[in-house]
């Protein structure tokens, strides 16, 4: 067995997670924020490991 097996498993599992999530929570591109946060005039609302919950 070579490194191809765990690598393909990693990518495959990632694909499954994304596919299941897409089915459960389809994104809406019409609600997308501006392409760049810098210059958008709005505060970043993303989750971050260094932040306490808002």
């Amino acid at each position: 067995m070579t490194r191809a097996v765990p690598a393909c498993l990693a990518l495959g599992l990632l694909g499954v997670i994304v596919a299941l999530d897409l089915a459960a929570a389809p994104p809406n591109p019409y609600r997308a924020p501006a392409a760049f946060a810098l210059g958008s005039g709005t505060a970043s609302a993303g989750g971050f490991c260094g932040a306490l919950p808002d």
């Binding site: 990693a10 990518l11 999530d21 389809p26 989750g47």
Partner: peptide, 28 residues
Amino acid sequence: WTAPGSMDRVQASLLTDYTSLTDIGLIA
């Protein structure tokens, strides 16, 4: 996880979470 921001992100698409996207990119 019950804070409003956290709840919103749990319910939203994973592809709208910034760190998830860069994590996916790291693996791929």
